[in-house]
Design a protein around this nucleic acid. Structure first.
Length: 902
RNA sequence: GCGGGCGUGGCGGAAUUGGUAGACGCGCUGGAUUUAGGUUCCAGUGGGGUGACUCGUGGGGGUUCAAGUCCCUCCGCCCGUACCA
């Protein structure tokens, strides 16, 4: 009978659910029973494994929780399938597995829905969650649904507010002024993605930068630790660690005060000292003699001060503010500067002055918001100097052979090598630099800093690129920040007894701005300390805050009194395997690492690194289609013709088949997971996700690939249901394992068990699938043989059934039942290969002549080198290739290769 | 701009440490069986050459007995860039 995925998948999902198969055991349950074996054990292999276990080990598998956008997409299916394979494998290997699911439920789209369609963010969100939960369940994931949480539940964000207060008390949360994108028409703050070409996405108004008081988390307090600890994350992808390292961006440099010598404003609101000098950060103090200008950010206090009396400068600053808030926009914009008329004294060259510019490429958030420009040795400074006709003085020259060892200052006059093309940013020797002449860059940096220090105008500093984390959002649908502002008492934390601060449900979304701010009553409260009328903080938390600690909450999701339960986090954390997209490589993962440290410092958890293992998956791509008018079409709106072209299903007109691109709603190149599961079943969808493309790489969704997966699922079923397989399986196996069985086939079976286990543990799921398919091919061939042994065949089929079970859990369970077992496959132990069957006595060796393959020979394992050489040289093809020449050298790598060098 | 990644047949990809390039699958070609439901089975399949051979892992250069793998350089695509999540 043909396999019916719809009925079978539902049957097993209901069974797992009713037996609570995937509920994690509480740490107390595991700790109390010293011999607690990993559930039912019925196989020979598990006996060795289970018996000596004194305490069941835990394994925490976490896939990044989804934003409840409305429907699940293929990216979710991939993410959760990958996590599920790990969870099911570890469960079978005897671990107490925690594999939970939740919802990253606060955020902008809910608020947009409210504005566009008048639905309340809460209702919209919970409706979406209900839909998506149903869709997720159909994938057949081994999730412990009893731990489900949503970050917009008051039972979740209540604890987040408590954490905020604890951070505040430790000085890890603070308030300062910072810039936002301001839409003057909608009177609202815009996210970077809502600013398109400098204009608000909805209003089209030119976006301004506006300074607001905002809340920050002091992530920079842990900059060094976050950097140093990266080395301990040995189960993270190297690329993610590198990206984080560069993001934190530790650099050694100097801060230098440049004294203003002319053009200084007489009265300054900043204090006399500041208005008489400009403090600059540089990583290249060695190039000070090449300095030709100072550039300050448009947001620098000095720039603002000068703008008051200079309308042209004011206009320039307004122009700079239009570029936008993103680093990419600022750094790709054409370099522009405005001469402030100020000049500063060169610290080392008496009488020399440098002009001060306001420049659009200097970032206020990094360093001191001011730089000195050395055009000869910096690309940006070079462009700037060329544009504004500023001096370009070379002070570093690449060393050549003649000057390598010398370091006296007569060398600078010698011009020992030809001029390097400027700007030159490499290492070399200092020239044109008085007391630095002849030194290398590193030594010159040190000497320059010493001199600056002695002069009292500078010092060496360590600078991080990492900035404090701005968590304030002027929005409704987020976790309210539990702070009260009182005119008399200032910033007052909400007393813990008053938590949670709950969002009002009657917010008005018809007006612009922050609904919490213009709500008639919500923000008006009495000061907890003096009882006078006061105001609530109306900013809510960045949603990255919500997702920074959800992993810890999963350990005890129902604790009503505290954010986490210590005994639970001590047992379950860290997360053993975290799975999610690379797009989170920096922000989410860095914020979580910070949050864990902050929770550690405030006594909530006892660890610092939340994720011991990390796997970053690739994205899902699909062909894109356009009709004759250039409008995007959904894949189901077109049909491929036999000649390779495509037509519109409705109009019959030709369709342009575009490139394979990341699935996105805007390009309509999406495939709905629900439709695929309806048509083929979850196992087929899962198999397609896992075969072919390695999980870390982008995956191209193709209809033919799905068909291939579908055919394999059907083929697996025939293996237990049809002839000649069914008859072979019905023969009674011997009680003694191995007796009368076919050793050659058993070898293949056990090698496959070892191989698949290894592939799965290394996330090489595509290779694991390939190995199982190969075993399937072998067993089908074997079954066609009239002398095939039934017990051998059964051993092979049972191996396949277990090996595919993490990937195709439904059909594997059904096959297991069909094979006559009373147990549930999900409670069975993972197969273990017999080591004796993994060793080959004969090996195939390649024979090369001058690196080119000429023959292959079969030799006994570990055979003597001279014997290998003799047999290799006796090969006819080898002699032909040698063409009478005598071998000069023979390289032999045992059991692998013989290379004859002629 | 900066940081990170990827590039192998017609296609997705395989190849623990440098050691037989193309496993496994898709597609295609030829044949068989059955055709009421996305069939199934057999054979073939990197390019060139009748063949011995030869050329082949984005382009160019290098190290090595041996390079998909290591080094330099160029090109293309993708991700992140701090208020999308």
């Amino acid at each position: 009978m043909r396999y019916n995925p719809r009925e079978t998948e539902q049957k097993w999902q209901e069974l797992w659910n009713s037996k609570k198969s995937f509920e994690a055991k509480e740490p107390s349950a595991v700790a109390v029973a010293p011999t607690a074996g990993p559930v039912v054990r019925s196989t020979e292999a598990s006996q060795q494994q289970g018996a000596e276990q004194s305490r069941q080990k835990k394994y925490f598998v976490l896939s990044m929780f989804p934003y409840p956008s409305g429907r699940i997409h293929m990216g979710h299916v991939r993410n959760y399938t990958l996590g599920d394979v790990v969870a099911r494998l570890r469960r079978a290997q005897g671990f107490n597995v925690l594999h939970p699911m939740g919802w990253d439920a606060f955020g902008l789209p809910a608020e947009n829905a409210a504005r566009e369609r008048g639905i309340s963010p809460k209702q919209w969100t919970y409706d979406n969650i209900a839909t998506m939960r149903g869709e997720l369940k159909r994938i057949g994931l081994s999730i412990d649904w009893s731990r489900e949480l949503a970050t917009c539940d008051t039972t979740y964000y209540k604890h987040q507010q408590k954490l905020f207060l604890d951070f505040y008390k430790k000085g890890l949360a603070y308030r300062r002024k910072s810039f936002v994108n301001w839409d003057p028409i909608d009177e609202t703050v815009l996210a970077n993605e809502q600013v398109i070409d400098g204009r608000g996405w909805r209003s089209g108004a030119l976006v301004e930068k506006r300074e607001l008081s905002q809340w920050f988390f002091k992530i920079t307090a842990y900059a060094d630790d976050l950097l140093q600890s990266l080395t301990s994350l040995d189960r993270w992808p190297e690329k993610v660690r590198l990206m984080q390292e560069n993001w934190i961006g530790k650099s050694e440099g100097a801060k230098i005060n440049f004294r203003i010598v002319s053009g200084a404003v007489a009265v300054a609101p900043l204090g006399a000292e500041q208005s008489h000098s400009i403090n600059v950060f540089t990583t290249r103090p060695d190039t000070l003699f090449g300095a030709s200008f100072i550039a300050i950010s448009a947001g620098h206090p000095m720039a603002k001060e000068r703008a008051k009396s200079n309308p042209a400068l004011d206009a320039f600053i307004i122009e700079c503010n239009k570029i936008g808030n993103t680093a990419a926009a600022i750094e790709t914009a054409e370099k522009q500067g405005f001469d402030t008329g100020l000049t500063v004294a060169h610290p080392f060259i008496a009488g020399k002055t440098l002009p001060v510019y306001v420049a659009n490429f200097v970032l206020m958030d990094y360093g001191t918001g001011a730089i000195f420009g050395c055009p000869a040795h910096d690309q940006r400074d070079y462009e700037f100097a060329t544009k504004y006709g500023l001096e370009i003085i070379q002070v570093v020259q690449e060393r050549n052979e003649a000057t390598k060892e010398r370091s006296d200052d007569t060398l600078s006059a010698l011009r020992p090598c030809g001029p390097s093309p400027l700007p030159y940013t490499g290492d070399g020797m200092l020239i044109n630099s008085e007391f630095l002449n002849g030194l290398d860059v590193t030594a010159a940096k040190k000497t320059a800093i010493e001199k600056l220090k002695a002069m009292g105008i500078g010092q060496g500093v360590t600078q991080f690129r990492l900035r404090d984390w701005g968590v304030s959002r002027q929005r409704y649908w987020g976790c309210p920040i539990p702070i009260i502002h009182c005119t008399a008492c200032g910033v007052v934390p909400v007393p813990e007894s008053q938590l949670p601060i709950v969002l009002p449900e009657d917010a008005d979304f018809t007006k612009g701005g922050n609904p919490l701010d213009h709500h008639p009553t919500w923000k008006h409260v009495n000061c907890p300390s003096c009882n006078a009328p006061a105001m609530r903080e109306t900013d809510t938390c960045d949603t990255f805050v919500d997702s920074s600690w959800y992993y810890a909450r999963f350990c005890s999701p129902h604790n009503a009194d505290e954010p986490v339960t210590k005994s639970a986090t001590d047992y379950w954390l860290p997360v053993d395997q975290y799975v999610g997209g690379v797009e989170h490589a920096i922000l989410h993962l860095l914020y979580s690492r910070f949050f864990t440290r902050a929770m550690n410092e405030t006594g909530h958890v006892s660890l610092k690194e939340p994720f011991a293992g990390l796997f970053t998956q690739g994205m899902i791509c699909h062909e894109s289609y356009k009709d004759e008018h250039g409008k995007w079409l959904y894949p189901e709106e077109m049909q491929k013709q036999p000649d390779g072209t495509a037509i519109n299903v409705k109009t019959g007109k030709p369709v342009t088949v575009g490139r394979v691109e990341v699935m996105s709603k805007s390009k309509k190149n999406v495939v709905d997971p629900g439709r695929i599961i309806d048509a083929y079943g979850a196992d087929t969808a899962r198999l397609f996700m896992l075969s072919d493309s390695p999980p870390e790489r982008d995956l191209e969704w193709t209809e033919s690939g799905v068909d291939g997966a579908w055919r394999y699922v059907q083929r697996l079923w025939r293996l237990v249901d049809e002839e000649p397989f069914a008859s072979l399986l019905s023969t009674t196996p011997s009680v003694h394992p191995g007796e009368g069985r076919d050793p050659a086939i058993r070898k293949v079976i056990h090698k496959t068990i070892a191989e698949v286990t290894d592939h799965l543990q290394r996330f090489a799921f595509n290779s694991a699938v390939a190995a199982v398919r190969k075993l399937t091919n072998t067993l089908e061939e074997y079954a066609a043989d009239k002398n095939a042994n039934g017990a051998t065949f059964r051993e092979g089929i049972e191996a396949i059934t277990r090996l595919i079970s993490p990937m195709l859990p439904h059909i594997a369970s059904e096959m297991w039942e069909k094979l006559g077992h009373q147990t549930m496959l999900v409670d069975e132990a993972w197969p273990i290969a017999d080591p004796a069957l993994l060793i080959d006595n004969v090996v195939t060796i390649a024979v090369q002549v001058n690196g080119k393959l000429r023959a292959t020979i079969e030799l006994p394992r570990d055979c003597a080198k001279d014997q290998a050489e003799k047999i290799a040289l006796s090969q006819e093809a080898v002699q032909r290739a040698l063409n009478g020449a005598t071998p000069k050298k023979v390289i032999i790598v045992p059991n692998k290769i013989v290379n004859v060098v002629a």
